[in-house]
Write a protein that binds this DNA or RNA. Structure first.
Length: 774
DNA sequence: CCAGTTCCGGTGACCTCT
DNA sequence: CAGAGGTCACCGGAACTG
């Protein structure tokens, strides 16, 4: 059925549906530009402007209102992340088409990348040094695949990976084919990864094979820089725990400085990096360290990779020999031999090699060709401008120490997430259990319900937002760092100076490793105690929480009984339950008051305030109920007046349908006593729950996400300030899981509200739960 | 104070892309 | 083909300048 021809907003000629309504092009553009914008329009007239073709420009407020009224959906507008992904996709497709148009034997379907990569293979004698390379372009057979089946140039380079999906056996494929399978179609890279890396062992074999070929390794890296979601996927395949993978992923973007330095090393000596990664792959858990540093700043990384391919790198064609005879030199020497002869025949202990190479690379031991950019003593800081000019000989201190060298065996370096992890872990789009399944997302990602790219975009967004926040702190932090550096005589790696800050802790070295915030820029030194801004944020919550102690209405106070027993076998809808339900209106009123005292909440537009409260008030109430639960009496201790507390027996919930009572008790019992008794924790958790960007009908989701993230951050910092490192991390992880639990329990609670007679409950509750009078 | 110029944000038509 | 975003010319208001 063709849509009506007039714009439902202004009456102008319409071509079809735009954002879920029939509108003209002009209203479509107007809505696209303004529906998600944070600017607040004002109506110059009487808030009731008639919108016509002529008047539509006169009042933006009424025009936007009408757009929403006639059903235009801002959800249909792409987020910045979505737009970015789409732009990249379009660019890739354009590149592909250009290549197809140019035709010729060198052309393939992988865009510009292979073109330049091919040029490198042709022009650089370095490639020959990697004699063991499986690179099919340089030494493999282009006419047959690894299974011996004839493929021809078309099938090996230009056919879509999906066409040959059924016949892939990753262990029999060449590096070129493996990488091609992943990068040829970014849309299906995730599926390709699933296909090629069905088990952890297979994943490691595949990655080993890929990094044996310099060209293919870099090609894959280039793809991963563009599609960090795929990097996350690969890491999750290599590692056992999706949480670890997530944390590693968050680390990718945590430290632009370190990331740039790693990239600069690639520029100066790709061979060393390939060798390094080969060694890392022998101990996958260490791979996180290098991966962590690898892709922080995609733009810079790509630029530098392009420099390699354009032949402008100034690296010596052969690896420089180490200049002094330390242990690292020997390691690197043997590594080179292995690389040139048989990469699989490493006679040294892999763990030792990895460890030494990590130290060599990350701490700037002046050996091998890496010394070309890392010749100085540790502790000499290079400004960013030097990093961006990687061929300079200016010494660089990486400010980094591999956690893998000091971690306890049972402790992967991932439990200390600083921020996006909580959001992701509780994101409606993220399924932790499903995340690491081999069958993950082939179909799901197609329909967008649980796509890796959605995780990626969410992560990117959160990291970006928090990183912006970090930036504002960076200047003073750098100053502190400098002071510490000078105090240490200029020889200590800067963050080792934290020993002073964290002094006295058992196992200082290890503790320091953990205290280095995974997701914070490495140049920032985190104090254990809350800084002024953090304290203010917490203080604001505490002040706001005073509203929770307001006295209750007299008519509801009857429920605040002390010893009144109920009969759990009473099957009828109890008046007591009704009273309890209505009492929650009091709690909700208090919570609303509290919310209004939070500046971030106050600053929001009214629509968002309403949406957050409607969606979050019961979850906040549940969170709060955890704290006020009196285990001995089986009751909630509720502030009755400023001075007195009253008890509400929790077994009133037995009157409700379903297992609300049991679920509630279960929830409380799984809450560690020392956490639930800490009002600061509960308040921050309440704020996290309140500022949930997942609520329906939100207009400014990104802004809310930022607020929520800031409370996640505050929670982590608060825990760090009151518990020692490991305990703080553990508490953080456990607490963010509780946020998922609250969501679950909330569904039970909401059912209770939905099962009562609307006419008998408080108007506030009717409004919140959209209860219609019978 | 005024006219001319420059800058900038908003708009709408048209185009490209999936 | 539908429905997204991108692009660009145009317009008008604000700021600046002589």
């Amino acid at each position: 059925m063709s849509p009506p021809k007039n714009c439902a907003v202004c009456g102008d000629k319409a071509l079809g549906y735009n954002f879920n309504a029939v509108t003209c092009e002009s209203c479509k553009a107007f809505f696209r530009r303004n529906a998600l914008a944070k600017k607040q329009f004002t109506c110059p007239f009487n808030q009731n402007c008639e919108i016509t073709v002529v008047t539509r420009r006169f009042c933006q407020k009424c025009r936007l209102k009408k757009c929403l009224d006639i059903g235009m959906k801002s959800e249909n507008i792409m987020s910045e992340e979505d737009k970015l992904i789409k732009r990249r996709k379009i660019e890739n497709n354009r590149a592909k088409r250009r290549m197809m148009e140019h035709g010729g034997s060198d052309a393939d379907a992988d865009g510009d990348y292979n073109k330049v990569a091919g040029a490198v293979a042709d022009s650089s004698s370095n490639v020959d040094m990697y004699g063991g390379s499986q690179d099919s372009q340089s030494c493999g057979s282009p006419d047959s695949d690894a299974n011996g089946r004839p493929t021809g140039p078309a099938s090996s380079t230009t056919s879509r990976p999906s066409d040959r999906r059924a016949e892939t056996n990753p262990l029999l494929m060449t590096a070129d084919q493996l990488v091609d399978e992943i990068v040829a179609d970014p849309d299906r890279a995730c599926q390709a990864i699933n296909r090629l890396m069905r088990t952890q062992k297979e994943s490691i074999s595949v990655m080993e094979k890929i990094i044996e070929s310099q060209k293919d390794a870099l090609k894959l890296v280039s793809h991963l820089i563009d599609y960090p979601g795929d990097a996350l996927k690969i890491i999750s395949k290599i590692m056992n725990s999706p949480f670890n993978a997530l944390t590693v992923f968050t680390k990718f973007m945590s430290s632009p400085t370190d990331g740039l330095e790693i990239i600069s090393k690639i520029v100066d000596s790709p061979k060393d990096v390939v060798e390094f990664m080969q060694n890392l792959m022998k101990s996958p858990e260490n791979a996180i360290d290098i991966m962590n540093k690898f892709m922080n700043t995609p733009a810079e990384a790509l630029k530098m990779l392009n420099r390699i391919f354009n032949g402008t790198n100034t690296t010596t064609e052969t690896a420089q020999k180490p200049v002094n005879g330390n242990a690292d030199k020997d390691v690197l020497d043997s590594g080179e031999q292995d690389l040139g002869q048989n990469p699989q025949c490493d006679k040294q202990s892999p763990a030792m090699r990895v460890d030494t190479v990590i130290q060599t690379m990350l701490h700037g031991s002046p050996s091998g060709s890496m010394s070309s950019i890392n010749t100085g003593e540790a502790g000499v800081t290079s400004p960013l401008s030097n990093i961006a000019s990687p061929t300079s000989n200016i010494p660089i201190d990486l400010h980094y120490q591999s956690p893998s060298t000091t971690l306890m065996p049972d402790e992967l370096p991932s439990t200390s997430s600083s921020h996006p992890l909580p959001y992701i872990a509780n994101s409606p789009e993220f399924d932790v259990k499903g995340f690491n399944q081999p069958s993950f997302s082939d179909e799901l990602s197609m329909d967008g319900s649980v796509s890796i790219n959605s995780i990626e975009s969410v992560l990117s967004e959160v990291i970006r937002l928090e990183y912006q926040a970090f930036n504002s702190l960076q200047a003073p932090a750098s100053r502190i760092k400098d002071e510490l550096y000078h105090a240490a005589g200029g020889i200590l790696p800067s963050y080792m100076s934290q020993e002073q800050a964290y002094g006295g802790c058992k196992g200082t070295q290890q503790y320091l490793q953990h205290q280095q915030p995974i997701c914070a820029p490495s140049s920032i030194i985190m104090e254990r105690d809350l800084n002024e801004a953090e304290q203010m944020k917490l203080r604001e919550l505490r002040l706001a929480s005073e509203a929770l102690y307001d006295p209750v209405d007299e008519d509801l106070s009857a429920l605040m009984i002390n010893d009144e027993r109920i009969k759990p076998d009473d099957a009828r809808q109890s008046p007591k339950l009704l009273q309890l339900i209505n009492l929650t209106a009091v709690a909700i009123k208090r919570l609303i008051k509290m919310a209004k005292k939070i500046s971030a909440f106050r600053d929001m537009c009214q629509e968002d305030q309403v949406a957050l409260l409607k969606g979050g008030c019961t979850e906040m109430m549940i969170m709060r109920s955890v704290m006020i639960y009196d285990n001995d009496r089986g009751a909630w201790k509720v502030p009755h007046t400023k001075e007195n507390m009253a008890n509400i027996r929790t077994d009133l919930l037995k009157f409700a349908k379903g297992n609300v009572y049991e679920e509630h008790l279960k929830f409380i019992s799984t809450f560690d006593e020392k956490w639930r008794m800490d009002e600061n924790i509960i308040l921050i958790m309440c704020a996290i729950v309140l500022f949930s960007p997942a609520r329906a009908r939100l207009i400014h989701k990104d802004a809310i996400r930022l607020d929520q993230n800031s409370y996640y951050y505050l929670l982590r910092r608060y825990l760090e300030s009151v518990y020692p490192g490991c305990e703080a991390k553990n508490a953080f992880i456990r607490l963010i899981q509780k946020i998922s639990d609250v969501e679950r329990l909330n569904k039970f609670i909401i059912n209770v509200y939905l099962n009562v007679n609307p006419s008998q409950v408080e108007p506030l509750l009717r409004e919140i739960f959209d209860l219609k009078n019978h």
